[in-house]
Design a protein around this nucleic acid. Structure first.
Lengths: 218, 218
DNA sequence: GAAAATCCGTTAATTATTTCACAAGCCCTC
DNA sequence: GAGGGCTTGTGAAATAATTAACGGATTTTC
């Protein structure tokens, strides 16, 4: 049981990390980075959980999926934890990403510094209305849609951010998948169909707002 | 049990709708609107679930929380369903909303037509750098931050969209809550502290992307 | 260096959510 | 208007996720 997950014993099906755990790892990561900035070396599950907005038990259980990282009586070493999470989430955080659809929302996302700051690089943006020689936006070239598949293929791009109109969404998604994309962050307000091996995360701003409105007392 | 929820009988604790159900209602709503545009009158749980990306059973169970709306052997009347969901989510879909932080992301959200299209109206945007007399963005006035609390108070605003830098997020949230806001859609990449009666939905773009990267095969 | 205080890792219990399976209801045809 | 074919609504079963409880390790204090 020690440091090696049980799956090592005889290549069992998989460690099976709950999706929600994986999601929270990203949140922990963000909080840890804040701690590093403040020169904090050690953190207890209680205080980290407090900052991340979860219960201490949940934090410990989440981390336990990946091994033993804490010191009883003391807590977790911040740097160790950050490395562990980085590994867990895939060291390929330098993964190239493309953005499709440089309209209002799309171009705002291009200028949004948050992605870069967290270690993602948007290689290029594609738009149906783009022309060769269009100016870069915040250092990112905006390229005609036709060149998307070739580009994705050539650069081994596995992740895409989608911000195209609903009417184009499914088509673009199909193309992206054809070209090798495996994960899509979808800002187009529609549900798209994808094969099992492709992961889509929908971020539908209007749906989020509508959902929130349910919790407003009348 | 019929059309009136059991809570009417003698004001029981509450109908207790699962959060995830409420969330999915918004998605169903969107899919239904697409159906209306295509002049579809009737839809089965199977086909609606297909479009919404869920299992038919789940759809039926979700709807069942609110009463009987379908016709066995036939399916659901699209218009009836739309009305039912609108009611369930709170008829106050004309709820006023304010946006705080008119930077890159904030101003893109202002121009984003999706909110309006779904029936939300952004009354005003506030920014620390705004000056009286600044031009409107897409019809929405951009107002100095100092006037936020007064405005929210006066206009009975219950919902806010937050797109300010991390360093300002908690302060602004505290002010918003003081002024009466009950639900916050938070695009600032940080977890904010709120009392129990306030609902926050975090949309952290970098976290979403990082999370997705876990599912990319190496 | 012993005792007290802290805090992790883990099992078990609880709670929430999803799925199954099927009875009951309704449409539609003949 | 009777019967076959669909499709809903729903209890019960299965699954997943969260929380609680606690043993044991480690630090800190005196």
């Amino acid at each position: 049981m020690e440091y090696s997950p049980s799956c090592m014993k005889e290549s069992l099906p998989a460690p099976v990390i709950p999706k929600k755990t994986v999601y929270r790892l990203s949140i922990y990561q963000r909080c840890l980075q804040r701690l590093i900035e403040n020169d904090v070396n050690t953190v207890s599950s209680e205080s980290l959980a407090g900052v991340a907005g979860v219960k201490p038990t949940q934090l410990r259980k989440d981390l336990a999926h990946f091994g033993h990282f804490g010191t009883r009586g003391l807590g977790y070493n911040v740097n160790t934890l950050v490395e562990m999470i980085r590994d867990a989430l895939g060291r390929n955080r330098l993964q190239p990403v493309v953005l499709v659809g440089a309209g209002n929302l799309g171009s705002a996302l291009l200028r949004y510094s948050g992605f870069q700051k967290e270690g993602f690089e948007i290689l290029a943006a594609f738009d149906i209305a783009a022309r060769r020689g269009d100016p870069k936006v915040d250092g990112v070239p905006v390229i005609p849609q036709e060149e998307m598949m070739g580009f994705v293929n050539k650069n081994d791009v596995r992740m895409a951010i989608l911000a195209v109109p609903v009417s184009a969404a499914q088509d673009v998604v199909d193309q992206l998948i054809d070209a090798g994309v495996q994960a899509i962050l979808n800002f187009s307000p529609t549900v798209v169909d994808v094969p099992d091996h492709v992961m889509v995360k929908n971020v539908d701003l209007a749906v989020e707002l509508e959902n929130l409105s349910y919790f407003v007392r009348n």
